[in-house]
């Protein structure tokens, strides 16, 4: 992360950004799951009809959920966690790792999150 020559922060505003990032993460995950459920059902119908489209659609849907939408929400969540640590500490956090969130973030503000997403953190 870059060093800091100038540093000013309104922690409450940064916390609000974090809340939006977490909310977008949740909203995208939720809507994607709903879409993938219905797509998987359609793909099964198409598989039953011996189409080529059925298996391809099932794989595409899974790929989309895990690799692309999932990648995006992972980035939303990770960035939110980083900012949450910055806001909580009110300092420039240069050497961040995902475990910092669990130990340094305000868990009253983000209840349950430290445990909920622990397994998704690459360097936990």
């Amino acid at each position: 992360m870059a060093g800091a020559d100038v540093f000013t922060m309104e922690p409450d505003e940064v916390h609000k950004s974090v809340e939006i990032l977490f909310d977008v993460e949740s909203e995208v995950d939720s809507r994607t799951a709903t879409l993938i459920d219905s797509t998987t059902e359609l793909a099964q119908q198409l598989k039953d009809s011996d189409t080529a489209l059925g298996p391809a659609l099932a794989e595409a849907a899974e790929w989309w959920q895990l690799r692309r939408a999932g990648g995006f929400t992972g980035l939303c969540g990770n960035t939110g966690e980083y900012l949450a640590v910055c806001a909580e500490e009110a300092v420039e956090v240069d050497d961040y790792n995902a475990g910092d969130f669990a130990s340094l973030a305000d868990h009253d503000r983000y209840p349950g999150r430290a445990n909920e997403n622990a397994s998704s953190r690459p360097d936990w």
Partner: peptide, 27 residues
């Protein structure tokens, strides 16, 4: 949802008025 990030986060709560540093720019 992506528009929320651009409008409410980048240009809103996380704008330079509320968070200014090299790292903030990078974020």
């Amino acid at each position: 949802q992506s528009e929320r990030l651009r409008t409410d986060v980048i240009a809103g709560h996380l704008s330079i008025e509320n968070y200014e540093s090299d790292t903030a720019t990078q974020v």
